[in-house]
Amino acid sequence: SSVSVVICSGDSVFLEGAYQYSAGTYFDTLTGGNNCDSIITTILTFASSDSSLTAASICFGDSMLLQGAYQTTAGSYVDSFSNAGGCDSVVTTNLTVSSQLSVQLSSDTTIVTGGSVVLVASGGASYLWSTGDTGSSVTVSPTSTTTYWVNVSDSLGCLGTGQVTVTVLPAEYLVYVPNVLSLSSVNLEHTRLYVYGRGVESLELIIYDRWGKKVYESSDASATTRSDGQCCAYGIGWDGTYKETGKPLNSAVFVYKLTGLFSNGKEFIESGNITLIK
């Protein structure tokens, strides 16, 4: 009689008194119950195992099931499956993990009732704000203190998020610092840098040069009427010299930090740049 046997590459079958690892035709003689010979012809073939290489990418913080576990780090992972012939199918997956998406977003800010502010996000390819806007920037005019969030996705579909709070003050409470001090201005009020606002109870203004060295500090919250007749300018103002010693500073960009309290007890914190022009 003749039989066909199919085994996987690398396996063997016992034929002709030995384990056979090669395809071919093999003959075995068996003795039956009546002492007559029975010749078995075996046609042996091999089904091939297969292997493949694939690449996969996941976002930072995601995972993929490889080698029997959820993998979160980049690397090469090998999995074995059975193919249609019942033989091994080896799949090697080169896994890459995208860097964590960094969302840059406008700092928390303060406006007065009726005001508006532009919030800007960057770091991605598409944006979705809590307002429903889908651009990288959005103009908001909240009537009360509001926290806005934005979902950002990159070209691979990986997600990041950020949020910014816009504090809304009643119109009677306001504080700001001009971003330019022009010592040659014909307007004498502009030749000193004042803190302007309304309803300020106390303050501390510190100005630093670009190396972080303190060049001016004041906690003078005495209020005077501005040159336009409006309230108010606070303190005696910075005259552009080093620690009020009379030593003039060169034209440059400086950084300020302003903290204090309004008369309603609410704290304010502001910071920004000041350009000194001679």
Rank of each mutant, 00 (worst) to 15 (best):
A56H: 10
V103M: 05
P248N: 13
E217V: 14
E244T: 11
K257T: 14
S141M: 01
R226H: 03
G61Q: 10
Y70E: 12
S52H: 02
Y194P: 00
K266V: 15
L193C: 07
S52N: 09
G132P: 10
Y216F: 15
G115D: 14
S49H: 10
A223I: 01
G86W: 09
F60W: 11
N179S: 14
V177N: 02
P142V: 03
A84N: 11
C87M: 09
T147F: 07
S99W: 00
V90Y: 11
Q163C: 11
V253T: 15
I269P: 00
I236G: 02
S144K: 02
T167L: 06
N250F: 04
Y21L: 07
S80T: 15
D209T: 07
L95P: 03
T25Q: 04
S51W: 00
W238M: 06
V175L: 10
N94V: 06
G132A: 12
N250R: 12
A223T: 02
V118F: 01
D154R: 03
D209L: 12
T146K: 05
C87Y: 09
S153V: 14
Y19S: 09
G17W: 11
S80W: 02
A18I: 08
A125I: 09
R192H: 14
L203T: 00
P178L: 08
Y26L: 04
L66M: 09
G197M: 13
S141L: 01
N250A: 14
Y70M: 09
N187A: 13
N35Y: 03
T72I: 12
W129K: 03
T134Y: 05
V5T: 15
Y176C: 01
E267M: 10
T241P: 02
Q67N: 14
T143L: 13
V255L: 11
D133T: 10
A84V: 12
C8V: 05
G85R: 07
L174C: 05
T224I: 08
S184Q: 13
I277C: 03
D79S: 13
E270V: 02
E204Q: 13
V138T: 08
T275S: 13
Q20S: 01
Y148D: 07
P142H: 05
V13W: 01
G260F: 01
V166A: 06
S222I: 08
N83M: 05
S182E: 12
E16R: 09
N250Y: 04
T31F: 06
T245A: 08
T245R: 07
L261I: 00
L258D: 07
V195Q: 03
F81D: 07
L15S: 01
G132R: 10
E172Y: 04
S76C: 05
L249R: 13
G160V: 10
S202C: 02
V6N: 11
T93G: 07
S57R: 15
L203Y: 00
D62Q: 15
G17R: 14
V255K: 03
G235Y: 01
L128C: 02
D239S: 08
S1Q: 02
T113I: 02
T25G: 00
A23W: 00
C232K: 05
L65M: 14
L101Q: 06
G68E: 05
A18P: 00
T191D: 03
S116K: 09
D62N: 14
S227L: 13
I43A: 08
N35Q: 06
I58S: 11
S63E: 15
Q230I: 04
S144P: 00
T147A: 09
S4H: 04
Q71P: 06
G135F: 04
